[in-house]
Simulated scan of single mutants.
Amino acid sequence: MNGLPRTDGVTVRRVVIDHVKIGVSDLARSRAFYVAALAPLGFGELYADESGISFGPPGVDDFIVSTLVPTAAGLHVAFAAERRDQVDAFHAAALAAGGVDNGAPGPRTQYSAGYYGAFVLDPDGHNVEAVCHGG
């Protein structure tokens, strides 16, 4: 089961991954991209050193980029959004920060009912998504 159903019919998603670290080739370029792209989702830069940067909501480093990790082709990371307007804002901010459109914001009912997502390729070609389930 992907979530915990409540008596009111709403499913609360269970977090199954604590954090994700991906490899990047240019830390400064990735910093600029992710600072802009993740801001609409409530993520900010939490920690940085010469080899990596962590991002997340205040006090929770959920996502890390690092030059110490090899960049891998075909990597896909999906960030949860609470509302569709956050997905739209993520997509616009990511494109403005140099990302490449890989799927404009919109319903993706082939994945599930209520799925609303947008996809952007980051500076290293990673497929980065923001998704809202239902909101």
Score class of each variant (00 low, 15 high):
4 L>R: 03
9 G>F: 12
11 T>W: 04
11 T>E: 10
17 I>Q: 14
18 D>V: 03
20 V>D: 08
21 K>E: 15
24 V>R: 09
27 L>S: 11
29 R>S: 11
32 A>H: 11
33 F>A: 01
33 F>T: 01
38 L>H: 01
39 A>L: 02
40 P>L: 00
41 L>E: 05
42 G>W: 00
42 G>K: 00
44 G>M: 06
45 E>Y: 11
46 L>C: 14
47 Y>V: 11
48 A>Y: 12
51 S>W: 02
51 S>F: 05
53 I>P: 14
58 P>G: 02
62 D>L: 13
66 S>P: 07
71 T>L: 03
73 A>I: 10
74 G>W: 06
75 L>A: 12
76 H>N: 09
83 R>T: 08
85 D>H: 11
88 D>M: 03
98 G>L: 10
99 G>V: 02
99 G>D: 11
99 G>R: 08
102 N>W: 05
103 G>L: 11
104 A>Q: 13
108 R>I: 02
109 T>Q: 13
110 Q>M: 09
111 Y>G: 15
114 G>F: 10
115 Y>P: 15
115 Y>K: 11
118 A>L: 02
118 A>P: 02
119 F>D: 12
121 L>K: 12
122 D>I: 07
123 P>L: 08
125 G>W: 05
131 V>Y: 12
131 V>S: 15
132 C>K: 00
133 H>I: 00
133 H>C: 00
134 G>N: 09
